[in-house]
Computed example of a mutant assay.
Amino acid sequence: MATRTTKPKPSTSTELAACQPCGGTGNVPTTVRVGRKRRPVGQQDGLCLNCLGSGTAPDA
């Protein structure tokens, strides 16, 4: 009788890869500029345009 070979089962894990630019948070820092010379005064959170705020990598 021939030996049986079994194929490895596909992963059932629902772990999704984190988005690279935002690190999985869905927010990226955006520089706030004010004045006529547009000098930077601080940062605020902005929506990550790579994953559109979901925090998961778009390729996954």
Rank of each mutant, 00 (worst) to 15 (best):
G46L: 02
T5M: 08
A17P: 13
G46V: 02
T56D: 01
S54K: 01
A18Q: 08
E15K: 14
G24I: 13
R39N: 07
N50E: 06
T5W: 14
A57Q: 04
V34L: 05
K7G: 05
D59S: 01
L47V: 06
S13Y: 11
C19F: 10
R39A: 05
N27M: 07
T5N: 07
T30M: 05
L47C: 02
G42S: 04
K7P: 12
A17E: 15
K9Y: 12
C51N: 04
G42K: 03
A60R: 02
G24V: 10
T56C: 00
L16N: 08
R33P: 06
A17N: 11
A17V: 13
N50C: 01
T31N: 08
P58R: 02
Q44E: 08
P21T: 11
P58C: 01
C22K: 03
T6G: 04
V41S: 00
Q44R: 10
G23Q: 08
V32W: 00
P29A: 06
P10F: 13
Q20Y: 15
G23Y: 13
R39W: 04
G53R: 02
L47T: 08
V34K: 06
T6K: 08
G53M: 04
G42D: 01
K9E: 14
P40D: 05
R39D: 07
L47G: 00
T6C: 09
G24H: 11
P40R: 03
G46P: 01
P10T: 05
R38C: 02
T56V: 10
